[in-house]
Structure formats: C-alpha cells, structure tokens
Design a protein around this nucleic acid. Structure first.
Lengths: 333, 333
DNA sequence: TTGAAAGCGCTAACAG
DNA sequence: CTGTTAGCGCTTTCAA
C-alpha cells in the first residue's frame, strides 16, 4: 500500500485540475486535451504518483489480480506453466497471486477462500476435480475460472489443456508398434491427480494389445521412479519397456537401470511424459510426450484477461501435444 | 472482487446491528458481547459474507499481500523457495504475488512498479544488486524489503541467505583436500547473477592452491552444462574435477561424461551446488552443497510478516549450508 | 458494549 | 474538454 505516495488529489492540486481529469488521463486519457494530458503526466512523474490500487479496486470492482492454485510448484511442468501465466498476465497489466494446494482439496478450498478474500478477479485451477464448495463459491460470486492440464469438451466448465487419456493411449500404442508386449506403467499417486487417473485409464483401455500391462504407483519424484523401477528390475519382472507418466519418474528409471547394470534401450526401453528441458540431453535421449506447459499458461492467461476485459466466455481449448521420438525406446524385432 | 457477495451492510441489516459492530467481530471480536458475536458470526456464515479486500485495504492501508520478484522459477531452487514463502505467508493470512524478472534489471523494475501499484505491502528480492530506481521507490514509500539468496552482514539492506563466496571456497577446498589440482569451474551467466559472481570470486581467491583453476561460463541448464563439459573433455583439458555452481550444470556434466565414455568418479570427479532432490539418486550420487532453499523462504516469509505486524526491523540472517559428501568426487592418491 | 459518522483514494455518471 | 458529486465497502474514532 503506498502509504506515503502522492494521491490523485495532490496531482489535481499541483496542476490546478480536478481529480476527475487526472483520473481520465491516468486511465487511457480519452477526452482530454493534449496539453492537459502533458501537464498531468508531468505532474504525476514529478510527484511520483502511483494510483492507490485499493481505492481503484473499490471503485471499479476489479483488482486486476488473477489467482492460480496449483498442486505443487516443484515440478518443472508447473513451474513453466506458472512462468507463462505470469508473463502473459503481466504483459496485459494483470498480476498473479499464487497458492499451492499440495494436491489437497481442503487446502485448495482454503486457498481459494483466501485469494477471493484478497480480491482475485479470476481463478486458474489445476485438473478437473475440485470440491463442490469451491466451485459454488466461485459461481455464486460469478468469478470466472478455468481448469487446466486437462481438456474435456464435455465438461461444463472450460478446460484448457490436453487429452491425458488420449496421449497415454498414443504412448502405449507407440510402445506396441515397436514390438513391446510386456510393459510396466509407472505413475504418481492416483488420489492426488485426476490427470494421472486419466492417463492410467487411457493406457488400461488398450491392455488387450499386451501380454502384460502392469501399473505401478510410486511417489512422483526421481527417487520414486528409481525405487519403483529398481524393485521390478530386481524382481525380474521382465518388462521390455517402462512407460513413465512423468519425465521425473523416467529419470529415476534411468538411474535404476544404471544401478542394475541394464542398458537403455538395449536391455530395457523407457518412455517419459512431459518433455522436460533435460529430456534431450540425458543419455540416451528420452523418448517422451511433449506437453505444452508454457503454451497452456499463455493460453489460459490470455483467455482469462480477454474474459475479464470483454466478458467473452471462457472456452475449452485443446493444446497440441505429441510424442517426441528420441533414443530410449528400442524397436524389438 | 466479490461483486455479488454480501457486504458488511447486509450482515448489519440481517442482525439488526451496526456495521461497526460487525467489523469488530470480524476482526478479532474485541469489546463485543459473546452473544452478539455468535449472532454476527452466524449471519456471516449464512450470508457467506467475505469482507471486501479493497475496501479493507483502503481503510487500513495494508493489503496483506507480499511481492516476490525472482529471476526465474524454472530452477527447483527457486521453486522450492517460492513454495516455502507461499506456505509461510499463507499460514499467517498473507498472500504472495509473484513476478519473474528473467534476471533483467529493467524487467525487475517494471515488475516492482506493477506490484507496488497492486498494493504489495513488502517485497522479497533475489540477490543483492538492484537498480537504484527500484530501491528508491521502495524506500520512499517505506515499503520493507529483503534481499535473498545472499548473506552480507555489511549490507545496509537486510539479506537473508547464505555466504556464496564462502561456500564456493569450501567446495574448492574440498576438491583440493581430495587431491585435485586441476579443476574446472562451470558456472552460469555472470551478468545475470551476483550470486554466481560471488561464488566465482570465492573460488578464484584460492587459485593459488591449484595447478589449474579454470572458469567456464555456460547457460544455466542441463544442456549448458553438458555442452560445456563435453567441450573441455573433447579438448583434452585434463581436469580431474569439475565444480559446477549448480546441480543442473552437474547433471549436464554427468551426461557429457556418459557421452565421452568417462566414468564418474574414476575418470573425472564432479561436484554440484544446490542439492536438488535427485542429487542423491543420480548414479553415482552427487557430492554437492546443500542450499537451504526452503528454509530461506520460511525465514524471509516469517520475518516479513513479523515486520509488517509489529514493525520490527528486518534483519540479515545467515542460513546453514554445507557440503554433502556422496560419491562423485574421487580421492586422488 | 454498541452506534453514528467521517473518511480511505479513486472512478464514473452527469453537467456544463 | 473539464468539473461536481456521489458513492465503492470497510475501519475507526468519538459518543452514548
């Protein structure tokens, strides 16, 4: 809060104009003579005037703040996503308030309450499943919100993201087309993420194509992936390929293989999901699915601002994602 | 902005009390009879009343929002840091607005302007070098701020973080004590980070201990580290150890070694800086310096809130950081 | 313990 | 093109 900055009244006094005029030039400057404009701007600069945001928000009923609630920021995908939102919003004069829910509905609700009580004009939520209380709260106040990281044309709420189930299917098919018939799917906690669930559902729908298609849940971290894959390797599971529903897990798989003396892709194939920055650098380079984390942030950000400014309804939007073939999946003969 | 929520007046009407009384119970409830209190709280719940933050901020001149400007969010260290700040702030009823400066002073200034114009009560800045304009702006408005990721007892501004130069020295000494006399230091862009500069300065001050102590600047990414180390390996630089001023760079070094057929630590040693989550999982586990990213976020967050609530001055604070010995540094005989 | 009333700084009709 | 005048919703003396 600019406790000591000049107020609009100071600028009015300084220029001998009314506060209304000052307000006009500060906000776009329509219907103001060029000379007055100059004079006002000059005085603003001299006094280092910064409009009081609370007063402005109180008057306009808009804060120009949008809230994003994400499950975690410690995965690059979310970090990239947030960076994109911040950038897109910032370019349009909006700010981002961030809350982290730790994949907990109660925490998410509490965060939303706080952010609403902070004046957020719109909300960006992750995934598709949220407490009814949260959605009600937003609906009642007519605060626009969008679900992200998912795309569901049938949803009543706008979803901007990708088709998790579809992409998982493609990944599975890719493995199948390379001759793999015994694959292990390694994924993060199901309860925490409807996206993970969707991916599993997608993969499972194709289980008929395989001799074995096993699912393993493990903490969503390099350590989790490593431990999980290490275990199956030790058990002699005999999978020819590991499909990891996150590159982080895939990196763990790499390390597990290194520990077990298995070569990728000669001995086992590994496929990821995310296409994180290092996926092309790892040895061998990781075949994975490129998720448009940054593009998704730009897309929601832009839509939200558009919605706030023109009242255009938010629309579901499918972002392109695709398999990036690199060197971690062998073609079995 | 809660355009449609009930206002304090609605609650007053509902209960037959005055807005002043409602305000009292909503804010702590001092000097209110227990019965009235109950009645009011009840009405609030029934009407789903949420105080209008803009009105409150206008009246109290505090927004309960703190701003953090970081160079990037795409490095886990910063992501962890931000997560900790958000958590600490949230627990105390404060919110976090985030801006990303891309290590650019002009962008940082613009962001600060925006956030100030958004009503931030305090600022958390990264590093120690900032444009005078920014610092002036904050000082003039008496907005408290702290520098982070650095610790400098001599600074006039509060710094909460660690001693970059000192830690770099320790790392270098560690390598020296293991018999390394030809080491390459791999670091990110100097212009972007005074912390990187401090680390380099610290390391350089010990160059007398070595036969060769070379410095290489590369983009701060796995790809950057890989390319840089790959190049020196190809050139036959003959370094027995690589000290990377970020674990991200170290991971790149691992991949470069894999490509070049060099074994770690038998052929070359690698040491990191950060202690990211996967540092213990990589093969061989990475010897690195553990930076208290999370603890640092908690520390600034707590101090800022304390300062805002009690006017206690912000104080510089040194956070513990230390070498974590794992398996990537060989002892030369 | 409660209420009346004066703002906080800005915007937005409405006049002129 | 510019000024007057109401508020926006809440907090906070000051009285009662």
């Amino acid at each position: 809060m600019s406790r000591l900055g000049a107020s609009i009244r100071d600028v009015a006094r300084e220029t001998g104009l009314s506060t209304a005029t000052i307000s006009r030039v500060v906000n776009g400057g329509t219907r103001v003579s060029e000379e007055t404009r100059k004079r006002v701007l000059d005085a603003c600069a001299r006094l280092d005037y910064l409009p009081n945001p609370a007063a402005r928000a109180l008057s306009t009923r808009r804060s120009k703040v949008v809230a994003a609630i994400i499950p975690t920021i410690e995965h690059s995908v979310f970090a990239k996503f947030i960076a994109a939102i911040e950038r897109t919003l910032g370019l349009r004069g909006y700010s981002l308030v961030l809350a982290i829910s730790n994949s907990d509905e109660a925490e998410e609700l509490a965060a939303a309450r706080k952010l609403l009580g902070m004046g957020a004009d719109a909300f960006i939520l992750s995934g598709q499943t949220h407490s009814g209380a949260l959605l009600n709260m937003l609906a009642k106040r007519q605060v626009p919100y969008a679900h992200t990281s998912v795309w569901d044309p049938d949803s009543t709420c706008p979803t901007v993201g990708y088709d998790n189930a579809g992409l998982a299917k493609e990944a599975v098919k890719h493995l199948h087309s390379h001759g793999h018939r015994n694959v292990a799917i390694v994924h993060g906690p199901l309860v925490e993420s409807d996206r993970t669930q969707a991916r599993c559902d997608g993969a499972r729908s194709l289980h008929g194509l395989f001799d074995t298609l096993d699912f393993f849940e493990t903490p969503l971290s390099v350590a989790g992936g490593k431990a999980c894959v290490g275990r199956t390797l030790a058990d002699g599971g005999g999978y020819s390929a590991y499909l990891c529903f996150s590159d982080v897990l895939a990196l763990g798989a790499y390390f597990a293989c290194a520990d077990a003396g298995k070569r990728i892709p000669q001995d086992v194939s590994v496929m990821g999901f995310d296409n994180l920055d290092w996926a092309a650098e790892v040895v061998p380079p990781l075949t994975t699915i490129d998720l448009p984390a940054f593009g998704m942030g730009e897309a929601v950000g832009a839509q939200i601002v558009e919605c706030l400014e023109t009242n255009a309804p938010l629309q579901s939007q499918l972002l392109p994602a695709r398999i990036i073939q690199r060197g971690s999946v062998a073609r079995l003969t």
